[in-house]
Amino acid sequence: MKRNTWQREAVREALGSRDDFVSAQGLHLSLREGGSPIGLATVYRALADLAVEGEADSLQSPEGESLYRACTSGHHHHLICRNCGLTVEIEADAVEQWARSVAARNGFTQAQHVVDVFGLCAACSLRETPRTT
């Protein structure tokens, strides 16, 4: 485990104050707007370390950018709105069973997986529904 510096603590606190996933650049911007002198490279390193240690969830956006969010405990997956970023944690049971089954049918053992489902949340779906007049 890395030592806890003021920079790492600032990143941890900033990440924990959000409900959505955020990029390193987005988190860096909010830290800077709050008066922090922290550098972008330091934010990237701190987020990567927090993800490795299980304190942050990490995923790739549909555009390929790494996004982070403070992590809850236990294995879980996410439903993520492509429009507003709303994120809902979902139970892993069905996904776990499916992953083991697919791996076994193909002769794989010790399978690991990452599952994040992107779509539109209910509010964004309503806004995107074509209106008929």
Score class of each variant (00 low, 15 high):
residue 132 T to M: 14
residue 26 G to S: 13
residue 117 V to M: 07
residue 122 A to C: 01
residue 88 V to E: 10
residue 55 E to H: 11
residue 113 H to Y: 15
residue 90 I to E: 01
residue 102 V to Y: 08
residue 119 G to Q: 04
residue 123 A to I: 06
residue 130 P to W: 01
residue 37 P to Y: 15
residue 13 E to N: 11
residue 110 Q to F: 11
residue 41 A to P: 03
residue 19 D to Q: 14
residue 87 T to K: 10
residue 103 A to I: 01
residue 117 V to Q: 04
residue 26 G to D: 11
residue 28 H to Q: 14
residue 68 Y to H: 05
residue 85 G to P: 01
residue 99 A to P: 00
residue 123 A to C: 12
residue 106 N to T: 09
residue 49 D to E: 14
residue 17 S to T: 13
residue 115 V to I: 08
residue 132 T to S: 13
residue 74 G to N: 05
residue 124 C to G: 15
residue 33 E to C: 14
residue 128 E to D: 09
residue 115 V to Q: 02
residue 16 G to E: 08
residue 14 A to I: 00
residue 88 V to L: 15
residue 49 D to R: 03
residue 17 S to A: 14
residue 29 L to K: 15
residue 103 A to C: 06
residue 84 C to P: 01
residue 119 G to P: 00
residue 107 G to I: 09
residue 113 H to Q: 07
residue 111 A to C: 05
residue 64 G to N: 03
residue 27 L to D: 00
residue 36 S to L: 10
residue 43 V to C: 12
residue 60 Q to R: 07
residue 32 R to H: 12
residue 102 V to S: 04
residue 59 L to T: 07
residue 72 T to F: 15
residue 18 R to I: 11
residue 76 H to V: 01
residue 45 R to E: 13
residue 14 A to H: 00
residue 73 S to T: 09
residue 57 D to Y: 06
residue 88 V to N: 09
residue 75 H to D: 03
residue 74 G to Y: 07
residue 98 W to S: 03
residue 78 H to N: 05
residue 81 C to N: 08
residue 14 A to Y: 00
